[in-house]
């Protein structure tokens, strides 16, 4: 028996909007720790890891670890039917091939339930090692989204370079080139508006911009985004989900041939 009650149902709506275009089908894993997902995009270039900790749910009952295969496009369609202020409850019986999403309006005057078919998904679970990164950049998520959008109108790839000067995002295309430098800026009114750069050593990596633009669909989940860069590893683009966990996107770099 599985029953997860999320008072801030809009979080789950936002999570689905953030991942549905990157991944078609995925297994949601439910355990005492929380509700999680790990999945690669179809080309195996990007990986998404989501965790919503059990403590973040108003009610969390998960009698045994279960994995529920869902089509994320269909799940997003169902969650779009929930109001932004609705409380969302996920329910599944042991051995059942369906999951029920229950939407309750804040005043309890409207209660809806949507039942979705589960699917068998043969997916591999990858071990993501703890790593030391050469540089970690925290910046406003809206700023990062703006940079990715602007650069993708010029080129297809972005070079992210972190030096003691700041973090530089560069692209080039048929019409020309673009460079955007963000310097560390901690003298702002609100901490979430700061750009903070922790650099152990300079690093420069090249990535396909279209993946970053897909990751920025998670912007509504968090005011800030963290980029962790190392020359030997995929970049990690992390959006923290307040009180609950995170959504992390891993993207393999492009390497000079």
């Amino acid at each position: 028996m599985l029953e997860l009650r999320l008072v801030q149902g809009s979080l789950l709506k936002k999570v689905l909007e953030a991942v549905k275009d990157l991944v078609n089908d995925a297994n949601f894993d439910c355990s005492a720790t929380g509700f999680s997902l790990q999945a690669m995009d179809s080309s195996h270039v990007a990986l998404v890891a989501l965790l919503l900790r059990s403590e973040g749910f108003e009610h969390y009952r998960c009698d045994r670890n279960i994995s529920m295969g869902m089509n994320l496009g269909n799940m997003a369609k169902m969650l779009k039917c929930a109001g932004n202020d609705d409380i969302i409850t996920l329910k599944a019986d042991d051995g059942s091939d369906v999951v029920t999403f229950m939407f309750e309006s804040p005043t309890q005057d409207k209660i809806a339930d949507f039942e979705m078919k589960l699917m068998d998904i043969d997916s591999e679970h990858l071990g993501i090692p703890e790593a030391e990164y050469h540089a970690i950049v925290r910046m406003p998520s809206s700023e990062f989204a703006r940079i990715c959008k602007d650069l993708s109108s010029i080129g297809d790839t972005v070079v992210i370079s972190v030096t003691k000067e700041g973090v530089k995002f560069s692209t080039r295309g048929d019409i020309g080139t673009a460079n955007i430098v963000c310097r560390q800026n901690t003298t702002v009114d609100k901490p979430e508006e700061a750009t903070v750069i922790e650099m152990n050593e300079p690093v420069s990596l090249t990535f396909a911009l279209r993946y970053f633009n897909s990751f920025t669909k998670a912007t509504p989940l968090s005011n800030t985004v963290t980029l962790s860069l190392s020359s030997e590893l995929p970049v990690v683009v992390e959006y923290k989900i307040a009180e609950m966990g995170y959504i992390r996107f891993y993207l393999a770099p492009k390497i000079e041939d």
């Binding site: 990858l126 993501i128 396909a208 390497i255 000079e256």
Partner: peptide
């Protein structure tokens, strides 16, 4: 010319 690396090059199956 850049070669796109695969995520499986970095992370192994559990």
């Amino acid at each position: 010319p850049c070669l796109q690396k695969n995520i499986l090059y970095y992370f192994n199956e559990d």
